[in-house]
Write a protein that binds this DNA or RNA. Sequence first.
DNA 1: AGCACGATTAACT
DNA 2: GTTAATCGTGCTC
Length: 203
Amino acid sequence: MLMSQPQRLTRSFYDRPALEVARNLLGKRLVHIDDGRRIAGVIIEAEAYGGEEDLGCHCRVGRTPRTLVMYGPPGHAYVYFTYGMHWMLNFVVEAPDNPAAILIRAVHPVEGVDIIAERRVSQPAVHWTDGPGKICQALNIDKRYNGIDLCDEKTPLFVEKGEAVPDSSVTIGPRVGLNTVPEPWKSIPWRFKVPRYEVLHAS
DNA sequence: AGCACGATTAACT
DNA sequence: GTTAATCGTGCTC
């Protein structure tokens, strides 16, 4: 019997320019082994942040306790808290001392859907994981995972290989929510999205 | 110690 | 379209 190939993405995937990683995360599978249960979704929206010159990035203030993980090696999680109630999941990319990260903004649920439904009760299925805070609620991701290594086979949070998404299915535009950020950072097209993924993949 | 604000969400009118 | 919820972070005093 053939051994199954490892599916977890390795460090070299994250050790590339932020825009390249953000684009190539589309179609990959975000997985959380949550209390032994696989909760997973296909990544369908991601945004790149990086460089102290990027005034939309938290690292614009330099090294602080919060931003330090972005100055570390690629392939680690950067999880932060905002608006007093929401967790945001990012992946650190590029070389150490070159602060950059990818915000995961939306996924399409594929595993543990019953558990996702419980955690997103009172919301319709189309809104279960269509925002960065919603993903962390649905997949039960919080500060426990800030700084963890996504490439270590022992960690319960990681990204797996998936089906490639063609350029014809991808839209590129400005990042969301940077209302008070000056130009050009407010409008720079560092957001990558697969519109209508669930329609394209309807069975 | 106090302050203003935020890579959002859900529930409003 | 508007707005409340709610608190960690980084800055000023």
